[in-house]
Design a binder for these strands. Structure first.
Lengths: 350, 350
DNA sequence: CAACAAAGGGAAAACGTTTTCCAAAGGACT
DNA sequence: AGTCCTTTGGAAAACGTTTTCCCTTTGTTG
């Protein structure tokens, strides 16, 4: 692999490497004829500057790294869209990294690779990506880091998060307004902060709205499974007078399984039972052909976009204070929630 | 931003930087007590090696770059999955890059950033990503490059491609075997090699199978639109005796629009008209609730996986010859093709 | 016309590593 | 005891840039 250096260009153009660098970077005035000559030689030799060498002396590469758990998950669709448009807006290069399936040690090496001369700052998405010790260590080096949905106590890094608790609270309220009083919840494993917060929102809403707080209205996704089917099955098997009239799921993937289960049993959604999800996924496995899922929407596009734009402003020095934002959710009204108790009502109303 | 160097570690441990390097890389034997001491100091100071400096002298970073047009497109789902699992298998770091919306000049800079000390090799997916001149230039530097679906004449780079022509041919044949004789084709813009090849496959099949080669059975997607709706609309408006009984689309996105159009007009799919797509997308915009689309499947997962694994083998030196592969397609039988002319036949058969 | 500023070029240091080369010390063998 | 290898540590060069500093030349001004 042949690579052209400024030294060779200098030799061919009859000037020192210093001068070549000055021409290429426009960093100081150079005689017009020399300027042209150097430019011509560089062009003709197909010169491209060495990123590593430049990074070494300039302590920067004009690039940002984005690290997510995986890139293929439909959940990330809008987030990626946001990152990509953010990248387009920003004058930083953006590289995306997936830590899917990697051990903590591999993740460390990966981020170390990034943070030591490949990118100038890094955006880490997701609570369970890294252990706290690692985040703390990274933060203590002062390397510019933006954590999204990844709060680590006492670390004053840049932080974006969404109000999960409020989101679920609003969803329960939404169902309440549609006449539902027996509202069940399919919760995620409580080892992730997101899931804990969401369950908290449910419990709080149940209390605040005076709903019956039956323990069998809350069920947890099993270890290693993301499947809401068996839980829905159990809900539907409850006696008619206590059977939930609405089921809220901690994310859309679970909701889609739950809906499939209901349809399979001949229970119509939303006429016989209402279902809500969380995340408002705009992309889904193409096997799903049920009704569009009414869901709590995170502003993922904005989060992605803002994170790139704000971090690049920070890196450029246009912004000195710490970046910290909490995003509010909204209800995406679609086809899986009906009014309860009004037989003649339409399937759906906002 | 404070960063720890081997020099400082050396000072603290009472040895030279050389020795520190040897300990950290296990590159030569060092006295046990010194070894331990250095390791302890490095650990305690939170040392991480500088990627740029290392890249400079070692001429390598143990990383691979993947460049695609965008990361959010559902089309890329299986490809990304393949890349990610390939990355997991390989011992190279993999970074993903999106050139969405970038000008050719920006793309050049982006790849230059990558190829000069950030990664050791690059995988470029997609025909229309770069102009030929650029590919030629990159290839001439000898930088390890793998082109997927990106043939540039006379460039002997590593190349993966799929047999588009054969894929469409097989699809027409498949429809033929289901009794269809009036088969229309919705073609992509002919500025991309993929689209040209696919159309070629259609024409060849029509000729080989002795189907009527009506020019109004071939229609091209309009500039700037990816929408098959108006074309389908036109097909359905043809007189009954010449109206196509099957419509083949150059990709699944177009097929989904075409199906939507048919359903809207009260034309049932596949009972009244059969539709096929290309790509076999496993992920789709969640608005689509029609039948699952019978489609020509590209082995995208394999392509992604193989490309990472093979390129890393090549970079490691385990493989010296040029990598070049053509992948065959298959028919993914789903719900949108029916037998024609047999009223009692089931909707679908393999 | 002397003094001084400004402009433009190059030498050399610096960035943080790895690696080559050299030197010293110790051990084995004749 | 002297020679020769082996082991282990350090000094210094190298990687390809940018940047600081210095020098020369030219132009300006009193």
């Amino acid at each position: 692999m042949r690579l052209v250096t400024i030294k060779e260009i200098g030799k061919l153009a009859g000037v020192s490497p210093t001068t070549v660098s000055r021409v290429l970077n426009n960093s100081r005035a150079v005689q017009p004829e020399i300027y042209e000559k150097v430019l011509a030689v560089a062009e003709q030799m197909g010169y491209t500057p060495n990123t590593a060498a430049r990074a070494l002396v300039k302590k920067g590469t004009n690039a940002i790294g984005v690290v997510v758990n995986n890139l293929h998950d439909p959940f990330f669709h809008d987030l990626l869209l946001g990152f990509e448009y953010g990248a387009l807006k920003s004058d930083y290069h953006v590289v995306f990294c997936s830590v899917m399936g990697k051990s903590m040690e591999e993740k460390r090496k990966y981020v170390s690779y990034l943070s030591n001369g490949v990118v100038d700052g890094v955006i880490l998405y997701g609570v369970y990506l890294f252990d706290e010790e690692f985040i703390r260590g990274l933060y203590s080096t002062g390397f510019p880091t933006l954590l999204i949905e990844n709060n680590v106590e006492a670390v004053q890094a840049h932080t974006f998060s969404i109000d999960n608790q409020q989101g679920v609270y609003a969803a329960v309220e939404f169902l309440f307004q549609h006449g539902h009083r027996r509202i069940a919840y399919i919760a995620g494993k409580q080892d992730k902060a997101v899931c804990v917060e969401r369950l908290l929102g449910y419990r709080e809403a149940v209390r605040a709205l005076g709903l019956e707080a039956r323990e069998d209205y809350v069920s947890f996704i099993e270890e290693g499974s993301e499947d809401g089917w068996p839980i829905m099955d159990a809900f539907l098997s409850m006696p008619a007078q206590v059977r939930p009239t609405a089921v809220l799921c901690y994310d859309d993937a679970v909701a889609s399984h739950a809906i499939r289960c209901a349809l399979k049993r001949g229970v119509r959604v939303p006429r016989d039972i209402s279902v809500m999800g969380f995340d408002n996924q705009t992309i889904a496995p193409s096997g799903y052909t049920g009704p569009a899922i009414t869901s709590v929407a995170q502003p993922l596009y904005e989060i992605g976009y803002d994170s790139i734009v704000l971090l690049s402003e920070y890196l450029r020095g246009d912004r000195r204070e710490r970046i910290s934002k909490t995003y509010q959710t909204s209800i995406a009204v679609k086809e899986t929630v009906a009014f309860y108790g009004k037989e003649g009502a339409s399937d759906e109303q906002g």
